[in-house]
Design a protein around this nucleic acid. Structure first.
Lengths: 118, 118
DNA sequence: CTGGATCCACTGCGATACTG
DNA sequence: CAGTATCGCAGTGGATCCAG
């Protein structure tokens, strides 16, 4: 876990961290992102499809998230030549591997809960 | 990775998710938290000690984060009977195991970067 | 159906000052 | 030294309306 923990010298603007791990955690922690990852891990989905599953997300934020995910190479975007237009999003290999790491938190978190209320 | 993805029925207030993984990711994504985890993984530290290492964090936020970490059972808080008073924070076993999981992101992230600029 | 544009409420957090 | 109290601003994301 490489964490240079910011500047070391002078204070920096928000999220100007150069620690990749922290960067990714911040990203994954943003609302809906983990959820999107999860839903896409069960197969490619369209925008509307995802919108339905992620009850409560707005179209704006969903589109924003998908762009970010794609920019990071976590998902792929493939528009279909149908009408009305349809766009399919799918996890890339990088995305798959990320999911597999994040998934390790599940049993861990369950263990935590068990200790709370045995 | 269990992600019930919110309500499923009606929209909910922010972070009212009942998915533990998402919960933890959101927590870890909050600024300074990962950084704190990292610094504590190299040994117990005091408030002031941490403040020095996490250049830029304010006393208020640091205290807040430490309380949260402790509340989640990730760190322990032990006040020394010295003067001026001193309080030592250390990773618990749960904290250690969390760090070991999060650490797996490091090589992964490095792999990502390598692909970007080979 | 996908997704851009606006408007706005909320809150995370930085800065600062103060107490035991 | 450890921690609390206040204030203020920028960023995040929800709601809504619109367009290709």
């Amino acid at each position: 876990m490489t964490i240079h923990c910011y500047p070391l010298e002078e204070p920096v603007a928000r999220s100007a961290t150069d620690c990749p791990v922290e960067e990714w955690l911040a990203f994954l922690g943003h609302r809906w992102n983990a959820c999107l990852l999860w839903h896409l891990s069960t197969g490619p989905k369209s925008h509307g499809d995802l919108a339905t599953r992620l009850r409560g997300i707005s179209s704006r934020v969903l589109a924003e998230r998908l762009v970010a995910l794609e920019a990071r190479g976590i998902i792929s975007r493939t528009p279909k030549a149908t009408w009305p237009r349809q766009v399919i999003y799918a996890l890339t290999d990088k995305g798959q591997s990320l999911v597999s790491i994040v998934s390790m938190l599940e049993p861990w978190a369950r263990g935590m809960a068990d200790q709370d209320e045995p």
